[in-house]
C-alpha cells in the first residue's frame, strides 16, 4: 500500500532515536578528549631513540651511522656525528650522535628509519597529541626529547620489544663468548712472555664485563 514504506522507515528511525538513549552500544562515537580508543600495538606515529639503563647520554643505542638520515623519504632527520667515541652495549667503541633532530612537522610516520636501523636504536612511538603553540622550535625535537628508555618501548610495543631484547641478549652473549675466546687465546699465546699483550687482552675482556652488568 502507498505509504507503507515510509511508516516502516519512521518506525526504524524511532527505534534508533529511543534506542540510543537506552542502549549505549548503539552510540559508536568516542568522545575524544574524555574518551580514547586503545591503540593497536602496531600503531605508530613518530620515532623515538631508545637507550639502555638510566642515563640517556650514556646508554643511547644510536651510533650516528646516519643510515636513517639518508633513508628518510621526507628528510626530517638531522644527525651530526660526535668527534669522540663511547662504548656500546657489547663494549665496542662507537660514535654517538652529537646532534639528533627530527622535525615533527615533516615526519610522515613511514617507519623506514626503524626498518633500516641495524642497532635497534630508533623505534616508533604511539603518542599522537604533538601539537604545540610554537611552530618552529616546538616542532623540532632534539636528542634529549627523543630519548626514551627501553622499558618505555617494552610498554608500548611489548611483542616487538621482546623480540628485540631476545636478539640483543643473544648478540651480547656471542660478543662475550668471542671476547672470552680472544682473551683465552691471548692469554695462551702471551703466556710465555707476559707483558703488554696480556694487559691489552685483560682490558678488552674487562669492557664487556661491565656491559653485561648493565
Amino acid at each position: 500500500m502507498l505509504g507503507e514504506g515510509i511508516i516502516q522507515g519512521l518506525v526504524e528511525t524511532a527505534r534508533n532515536f529511543f534506542g540510543s538513549y537506552v542502549e549505549k552500544d548503539r552510540l559508536t562515537t568516542v568522545q575524544y578528549p574524555e574518551e580514547r580508543h586503545t591503540l593497536p600495538e602496531a600503531s605508530r606515529v613518530f620515532p623515538i631513540l631508545l637507550y639502555d639503563g638510566d642515563d640517556a647520554a650514556k646508554g643511547l643505542r644510536c651510533v650516528a651511522c646516519q643510515i636513517c638520515e639518508k633513508e628518510c623519504p621526507p628528510r626530517c632527520i638531522h644527525i651530526e656525528k660526535s668527534k669522540d667515541k663511547k662504548p656500546d652495549f657489547v663494549g665496542k667503541q662507537q660514535f654517538y650522535p652529537a646532534v639528533f633532530d627530527i622535525d615533527v612537522a615533516v615526519c610522515m610516520s613511514c617507519q623506514i628509519c626503524v626498518e633500516v636501523c641495524p642497532f635497534d636504536a630508533i623505534r616508533m612511538d604511539k603518542v599522537y597529541e604533538l601539537s604545540t603553540s610554537d611552530r618552529f622550535g616546538g616542532l623540532l625535537w632534539t636528542k634529549e626529547q627523543l630519548s626514551k628508555p627501553n622499558e618505555y618501548y617494552q610498554k608500548i610495543h611489548p611483542m616487538e620489544a621482546a623480540e628485540t631484547d631476545e636478539r640483543r641478549v643473544k648478540e651480547l652473549a656471542e660478543a662475550q663468548a668471542k671476547a672470552a675466546a680472544a682473551a683465552a687465546k691471548a692469554a695462551q699465546t702471551a703466556s710465555p712472555a707476559p707483558g703488554d699483550a696480556s694487559g691489552n687482552g685483560a682490558s678488552a675482556a674487562a669492557k664487556p664485563a661491565t656491559a653485561v652488568h648493565e
Binding site: T13, N16, F17, G19, S20, R26, L27, T28, T29, Q31
Partner: peptide, 9 residues
Amino acid sequence: GLGRMQNRY
C-alpha cells in the same frame, strides 16, 4: 534529534 536517529550524540 537527527543525531539520535542516526545513533550519534
